[in-house]
Write a protein that binds this DNA or RNA. Structure first.
Lengths: 189, 189
DNA sequence: TTGAACATGTAAGCTGTTACATGATTTC
DNA sequence: GAAATCATGTAACAGCTTACATGTTCAA
């Protein structure tokens, strides 16, 4: 029966807050959930069409005079129903694919520098991510309490913070271990 | 051009160590890389056939008299070449999908208990995972130094340890925040 | 003898990525 | 005038999951 399409619920969840275009949805999703779930236009537009067909959202053309034409989508009662049903069901387990760990796992086939370079790049990437998360967090802390939703957003931001910190701590630990280890098979016997 | 098939390299990497059957590969992969990359039989057997066709592995029938028939696969020189080439290329960024965070993010639509139940279950799951990782780690520490490969395995185990700990710390933090927050819209005005 | 584990596969079908295609508008 | 951003989509296709199908061997 293949995988269940989670994109549906992301779109419904965002539309539950306010009417949005496909482009807006991408923006919002990148910003708010991008650190743990990415979606692309290639999923958004077709899913939106499917949701409209099923009567879970309605489409209208935005009346703004300026800018290119925008299709604005709104959630329907049926859509809200589908969304809340989904929220009442236990989630599937998380899904992670770390190519860096695979490459490290098989790392004995290439010079150690390959592995250290890899980890260095990983650190740079996630130092950046952590910085962004900390900004979100600071912004959120200022507006917390205004809206119940902020608490839930905050909780997901805390998750990102923990994870990125764990990444960075691990990276340093791994680099230290690699530096301590003498390269094998290079010294004269 | 769609995604690149990483399963190929996992199989080649495992075969680089020793000859294995499809069934063995699944076992090894579950045990050694299962915490950050899962593969199923539905990927393994077809990929094995493809790799054989391309001359990256060879297949022979195991001669053991006991047990069901086993197809044993061995990596070829060409296969080893493909594997090391892959190891020299920088990896793509990691890929994560946390359905639990999505459900929490949209959590204001359902009673808070839904969210706390979710996090409780998450904790149980990862307490279990952490326990397993700690066992691997202890085992590995006993044999470290015997083989260069162990260091790389150890590094991936440390990753799992950090991540699972981060999960659990976050879960407690999130639960605390949810408990502190009074349920909205329930009290009489 | 029943169930768990060993062992190998196929088929269906969604998911998600990447590339392509197009055009308006705003900003520098 | 060029580049970036806004904006909406389609097509191809690989990847991966799930379910199905089948049969053996070993242990309780």
């Amino acid at each position: 029966m293949a995988k269940e399409n989670t994109t549906i619920y992301i779109i419904l969840g965002l539309l539950n807050h306010e009417d949005l275009s496909g482009y807006d949805i991408k923006k919002r999703a990148d910003y708010m959930i991008g650190s743990f779930w990415e979606i692309g236009y290639g999923q958004i537009y077709p899913t939106l069409a499917k949701l409209e067909q099923e009567g879970l959202v309605t489409k209208r053309v935005s009346e703004e005079s300026k800018g290119p034409e925008r299709n604005l989508y709104a959630i329907t009662g049926a859509g809200r129903e589908v969304l809340t049903q989904w929220l009442k069901v236990p989630e599937q387990k998380e899904y992670t694919k770390y190519e860096i760990l695979l490459k490290l796992f098989f790392g004995s086939l290439v010079p150690v520098e390959e592995s250290t370079k890899r980890i260095d790049a990983f650190k740079v990437r996630h130092t950046e991510n952590l910085k962004m998360i900390e900004m979100f967090k600071a912004n959120l802390q200022r507006v917390m309490g205004e809206d119940q939703d902020h608490l839930f957003f905050y909780i997901t931001v805390l998750f990102g913070e923990r994870i990125y910190n764990a990444y960075l701590e691990w990276a340093d630990e791994a680099l230290k271990l690699l530096q301590e280890t003498p390269e094998k098979g290079q010294e004269p016997s």
